Amino acid sequence: MPVNPSKSIWLLLAGILNIVVAVLAQTVAPGLASEFARGLLFGVGAALVLCGVMARHLPNAADASTPALRRRYMREYIPAMAGYVVAVLGSTWLLKQNVEDPSLRALVALAPVPFVALAMRAMVRHIRDTDEMQRRIEVESVSLATALASLGYFAAGLLQAAKVIDIPSSVAMIGVFPLICLVYGVAKVVIVRRYA
């Protein structure tokens, strides 16, 4: 059963609105919003657009697991991701405030990690407790995402070594998990459609 089309339309519209506001903030009033705020608006907008597009192609969540399992997953996953967002924003802000002590800088920089670990725990528990068919779809999606993200990073590493591209190592390292999540979402759409 497909997702309610109105939900995906609202996600798309919210994402487009965020992107438009980010672009207007940069072109019309560049001093009004900081570069960080514009980047955040653009990133959230792009994520919402992607979620809206994917929501149109994924089956209804009710087809994948029981209501009790979905409630437990949301109870565990949403607070973890909210904590992650707050921790990333807070640690980024704190690190720009000239925190000098290396151990304190390390502690602040690693603040988002426990929240990602909690989100991963929620995902693993959800996959473990779904039925056999849904587990197969999830495992194939995660496997394909990991393989494609690894291949992409390997290719980028070769291009970096050949001095064709120049990506800062911190950006490359931080991007591994989000890239795997993004490719997982796309892979899941393809795999679900194959089994449908």
Rank of each mutant, 00 (worst) to 15 (best):
F177S: 12
S8W: 00
L58H: 00
Q97L: 05
V53E: 02
A172N: 05
M74Y: 11
R71C: 09
I78Y: 15
W10F: 08
S103I: 14
G175K: 06
P30G: 05
L13D: 08
T66E: 14
T27H: 14
Y153H: 15
P67W: 14
E76A: 10
G43N: 06
A172K: 02
S143V: 05
G83S: 13
Q97V: 04
A119I: 02
T27G: 08
S103F: 12
A37E: 07
P178W: 11
V108W: 12
M1Y: 07
Q160F: 08
M123D: 13
Y84M: 13
M120T: 08
A55Y: 01
A162I: 08
A117Y: 13
L95A: 05
G43H: 03
Y195F: 12
Y184W: 15
S170M: 10
T27D: 09
C181I: 11
A80C: 13
Y84F: 14
K188F: 00
D101Q: 10
L17G: 07
G31C: 03
V124R: 10
L159D: 13
T130Y: 02
V113L: 15
D166G: 04
A46N: 02
V23E: 04
A80S: 15
A22G: 07
T146P: 08
G152F: 04
T146N: 12
G31H: 10
A161I: 08
L107N: 10
I167V: 09
C51G: 01
C181S: 13
V49A: 01
A111N: 03
P114N: 06
H57L: 05
A155P: 12
A117F: 10
H57N: 06
V171G: 02
G45M: 02
V113T: 11
P112E: 07
A156W: 04
N4Y: 04
T66Y: 11
A122N: 00
V116F: 14
V176E: 12
L158P: 03
V85L: 15
P30C: 05
L32P: 04
A68E: 13
A187V: 01
G90F: 06
R105L: 03
Y195V: 05
Y184V: 07
L50W: 02
H126F: 10
I9C: 05
Q160M: 10
C51W: 00
M81L: 08
A68Q: 13
S141P: 01
L58Q: 00
Y184F: 15
Q97I: 05
K7C: 02
L50M: 11
A22M: 04
V44M: 05
M173N: 14
D166Q: 06
R121K: 13
A82V: 11
A47H: 03
M74G: 09
R56S: 08
R75L: 10
L48T: 00
L179Q: 02
A46W: 00
V53A: 06
I174E: 14
G15A: 02
L107E: 11
A64Q: 14
R75I: 06
A119S: 13
G43Q: 03
I174G: 11
A80F: 12
V113K: 09
